[in-house]
Design a protein around this nucleic acid. Structure first.
Lengths: 332, 332
DNA sequence: TTAATTTTTGCAACCGGTTGCAAAAATTAA
DNA sequence: TTAATTTTTGCAACCGGTTGCAAAAATTAA
């Protein structure tokens, strides 16, 4: 169906090299030749087969976009920004859903079989083995939303979750809460662990404050609602730092179901500042994670690694900040 | 870095054909040869380059997954199900974000350059030219969530939006609403047009009922909230069929901001039954679109087209049904 | 045992491109 | 004008695989 380079060459009465060079930026072709080839190509509706080209250039412009999180609404925005950013640079995302996957090897094999130029792992809850296994396979890899200190050998772009934990704690302290809680995501996620560490550290600077904590089953609405419901059955704290926004929204709903509300009865602060957080029916005070910047930086980094695969690994951390809305009481 | 077939052949002391056959299901190889090759392959960590293979087999197992909707949360579920379903069949989604794209040609050229085996267009708001342009390029294409009658030449899997409109209307009529409204999505979307047609048709069977309609700027929270806010400034109807769930949630929020609520003051029925609709803080009565079935069917259809590209085009429609929750008053 | 048949294997051409090298053409210098 | 230099072009080998065909090997039949 589609015309091949050979057909274009024949139709234009030139060598295949000439056609190839016409479609290779920077190659040596005279204007006359270029016009001649372009005319033939146009007439035949030719455009080069990128997969065949990749055999000799060793560049597919395919980037594996790997995630295990297809439930948290923030990831729709993540996919949107990644696909647009990659497309704008002429790269193509091969989307890999790791949700069902237990064995990293098979995903890695698959991505190598497709000769992806690089891999972006977009996940904060990924098992530590995954990202490393990709790197060991010799494929450039960037871990977006990953833990910055987890391994000095792999590129990470994300936030300082420990500092976010501290930030949340300071926010609660500054607002005069005396009994505070940490309602975390799953305790297996490094993001949860780091946020917990920072939060606890900062709270411990204030011995007069009563501190409790628990973890929920997932970063999900249901998990947040269920955990908060459980907490309300005992004697709840005055305010909670929830693992992320979606947990926060679940927790807020649990309050509502118990005829309580934030910030009147219990204060809530989340993390992410996903789009829904600003919806007036939610109006969540939260810590903003600069998703846009993290994604752009991840793309820049993977692009740089395409040119220099041996590039020295780095961590890129972006500062977060509190977005004040309506679920914490005012500063005292 | 990665071992090639030639290296495996040399290492095993056999021809390249033998190696190739070992990795080609159904090819003629003796057990002895197979074991020998597999051993060599294992020792060299070889797995075949799918892109090189595709040159002769003319199958890349790449499927273009094209969408222009990266904002409606329902699409996260859509991407999740598509990627899992495709992966389970050994196919790989090349994700294409059409949000910035005005010209279908360039996306089509790109997908052809990557020799995708087929294209799934997942969108209800796609400009009509897009899906057709893909098909004209000779690539198997399935339009998921598309309009079933728009063109008999292209495969469509979706719902009967006209019937959904009727269904929503019947639901409002049966609950005794006398003044009803259609708060649609953008009127350029075929889904909006069809839902409107059905809704109006059914309402017109009841001349005693007062009917008004308007369209919002997008299928989005903000658009729903803004449009409902606007409606509340005049004299609103007693109940509205909103274009989809995300518009409904926006509309419900507008009610709340005006100190009104559903169903006490105004009734709301949505369409989609996205995950959020069942959240207790939303509790939206809506029409369930069987997303899972639509996606599985789309994948089956594209798979079938890979074997028979000339397959006669068909429309697959799945019935919807009302999910009663808390935003319409009870049946009279 | 040998002949006929079936299965396995390797050769060589091919899929659709790129690229180093040398020859040819065009340009510049003398 | 001719010689020297630069630019353009085509040849042929290559990227990593598959596959039709014929020869070789293994199996079955006589």
């Amino acid at each position: 169906m589609a015309a091949t380079l050979k057909e274009v060459a024949k139709h234009a009465g030139v060598s295949t090299s000439a056609v190839s060079r016409t479609f290779t930026p920077g190659a040596s072709v005279s204007d006359k030749m270029r016009r001649r080839v372009e005319k033939a190509a146009r007439e035949l509706g030719y455009s080069p087969n990128l997969l065949a080209r990749s055999l000799t250039t060793r560049r597919t412009k395919l980037i594996g976009l790997v995630s295990n999180n297809f439930h948290n609404p923030i990831f729709l925005q993540v996919f949107d920004l990644f696909t647009r950013g990659l497309q704008a640079r002429g790269l193509r995302p091969l989307l890999v859903n790791l949700s069902d996957e237990t064995d990293p090897e098979s995903s890695i094999r698959m991505l190598r079989q497709y000769s992806v130029d690089g891999v972006i792992v977009a996940s904060s809850t990924l098992l530590p083995g995954f990202a490393k296994a990709f790197r060991d396979a010799g494929v450039p890899v960037v871990h977006s939303f990953g833990r910055y200190s987890s391994s000095p050998e792999i590129h990470v772009v994300g936030i300082d979750n420990v500092e976010c934990g501290r930030m949340a704690a300071r926010e609660l302290v500054n607002r005069g809460y005396k009994k505070v809680g940490f309602l975390g995501g799953p305790d297996t996620a490094t993001s949860t662990q780091d946020r917990f560490t920072g939060f606890k550290e900062e709270i411990n600077l204030h011995p007069e404050i009563d501190f409790k904590y628990s973890f929920s089953a997932a970063y999900s609405f249901d998990a947040g609602r269920d955990e908060m419901t459980r907490l309300l059955e005992r004697s709840p704290q005055e305010a909670y730092f929830c693992g992320d926004d979606i947990l926060s929204i679940g927790a807020l709903t649990a309050l509502k179901l118990a005829n309580l509300s934030a910030p009147q009865d219990i204060g809530i602060i989340g993390l992410n500042d996903m789009e829904m957080a600003r919806w007036e029916n939610i109006d969540l005070t939260t810590i903003r994670q600069p998703v846009n910047e993290i994604i752009n930086s991840s793309i820049e980094l993977i692009t740089a690694m395409l040119d220099d695969p041996e590039r020295y690994p780095e961590s890129r951390l972006f500062p977060c900040r509190v977005i004040e809305r309506g679920t914490l009481r005012p500063l005292v």
